[in-house]
């Protein structure tokens, strides 16, 4: 479907990923990184997660014709994650809820 070289992407991504992960392990003076940079990096996961969930959770269900079913899954995940730290519970709750919604004729 596309002429992308997937393995080149995997290798580049793996190398970059590893550099990101290993740098702090090799650094001994992490405290010297400017505060603004550390702040940016602390806040970015929150923004990233927001952008990861919307609109992806809805568009991923486009083929089913019921993208709004994502609301059920996200709601179930948020509700169960509120009460449990165990990640598998929100995952299971979301799959079951979404599946149940998609079952309705």
């Amino acid at each position: 479907m596309s002429d992308l070289n997937i393995m080149a992407i995997v290798i580049s991504a793996a190398v970059m990923n590893y550099i990101i992960r290993v740098t702090p392990f090799l650094m001994t003076n992490w405290e010297k990184v400017p505060l603004a940079v550390r702040r940016f990096l602390t806040i970015m996961p929150t923004a990233a997660l927001g952008a990861l969930i919307f609109p992806g959770s809805f568009t991923s269900l486009a083929e089913t014709g019921r993208p709004w079913a994502a609301l059920g899954g996200l709601g179930a995940a948020a509700l169960t994650a509120h009460y449990s730290k165990n990640l598998i519970i929100p995952v299971a709750a979301a799959v079951l809820t979404t599946w149940a919604i998609l079952q309705f004729p």
């Binding site: 991923s60 996200l74 994650a81 979301a94 998609l102």
Partner: peptide, 22 residues
């Protein structure tokens, strides 16, 4: 098909579970 479509929502659930504490 409906189950596999629903399973993709497991990722978004994981994201949601990670986002909720924030």
């Amino acid at each position: 098909a409906t189950l596999s479509a629903a399973m993709v929502s497991s990722l978004y659930a994981l994201f949601m579970a990670l986002l909720l504490p924030d």
